[in-house]
């Protein structure tokens, strides 16, 4: 049970069970689920009547109406479908920082959201951003798949440094289905995050971007003359730490986060910036609830 307790504490599981993933759009699922759709089909939820046409299933005829009106009517029901939930985890080297690491935090978030989906009989797929073949996770359904989901999450290792846009495009090519997509990343990609978000936007999914930063990035504890080495591409930035420089950094960071927020919001994409020191439980049960991702 170590993976389970590591990623999701029992207390959290108990709280998550009461939640459900909310899609702002109604999507057509593949299998029967617990979600109402616009399609008419079979369920207990009555939707409408329509005239009988030769060839309709006789089982759905309303015999009471026939007795009363001597006409054949067909009873229609609302179809209940499943929802596709995708969690995309950025496992680049830059996510391997902080205590706990940003990647660990992303995994916990993905596990929590995935668990909510599993409990509600949605189709959950957790993927790692990176090259296509290796990282495509299993499509999971049902509470019994929790174990498999956590195992898959546990097997994710940092160090897959693929440009954000490229890996997102890769994912979109493989998963054409619609649904909810949560992108867990730090957005610290030198080639820019905009291209990636444009690709996601074109996918017509219900997209949420959760930006995870570590406290070390928010308030860098640096001193003296430093040569900062980028963990991903070895790029070097020479700085001499001083109060004005740190203030400037804070401003740049705030502008960066605000820029990402604006970019996403303007495109109908949910955006949330979080830090690894915010507990996952609080994040899911409070902030994501406010954003409307879970209910």
């Amino acid at each position: 049970m170590d993976t389970t307790t590591e990623l999701l504490s029992p207390q959290l599981l108990a709280r998550l069970e009461r939640l459900e993933l909310v899609s702002r759009k109604v999507f057509r699922g593949r299998l029967k689920g617990e979600r109402r759709s616009h399609r008419k089909g079979q369920s207990v939820e009555f939707a409408d009547y329509r005239n009988y046409v030769a060839g309709d299933d006789l089982r759905f005829l309303d015999w009471n109406l026939y007795a009363r009106l001597d006409k054949l009517f067909l009873r229609l029901f609302l179809e209940e479908e499943d929802l596709h939930f995708y969690a995309l985890i950025d496992a680049s080297t830059s996510m391997d920082f902080g205590t706990p690491t940003k990647l660990q935090h992303a995994k916990q978030l993905a596990a929590a959201l995935g668990f909510i989906g599993l409990v509600r009989a949605d189709r959950v797929k957790i993927e790692v951003l990176g090259d296509s073949a290796r990282n495509s996770g299993p499509a999971l359904r049902g509470r019994r798949s929790l174990r498999r989901m956590l195992d898959h999450l546990g097997s994710i290792e940092p160090g897959q440094d693929v440009p954000l846009a490229e890996s997102v495009r890769n994912f979109c090519l493989r998963n054409s289905g619609k649904g909810i997509l949560v992108l867990l990343t730090d957005l610290l990609d030198k080639s820019g995050y905009e291209a990636a978000i444009r690709v996601l936007r074109a996918q017509r999914m219900d997209v949420y971007v959760i930006q995870i930063l570590s406290p070390e990035e928010k308030n860098p504890d640096l001193q003296g003359d430093l040569k900062l080495v980028d963990s991903e591409d070895g790029d070097i930035a020479e700085i001499t730490v001083s109060r004005p420089l740190l203030d400037r950094y804070q401003k740049t960071l705030a502008a960066f986060v605000q820029g990402a927020r604006d970019y996403c919001t303007r495109r109908g994409i949910g955006f949330m910036a979080t830090s690894t020191d915010v507990p996952v439980e609080q994040l899911v049960t409070k902030y994501l609830r406010e954003r409307g991702l879970v209910r």
Binding site: M95, D96, D189, P220, L226, S231, D235, I236
Partner: peptide, 14 residues
């Protein structure tokens, strides 16, 4: 002093 950071993206912008 060399120091490893997640990303120099923000620093270089700073």
């Amino acid at each position: 002093q060399p120091q490893r950071v997640p990303s120099t993206y923000l620093w270089s912008r700073t």
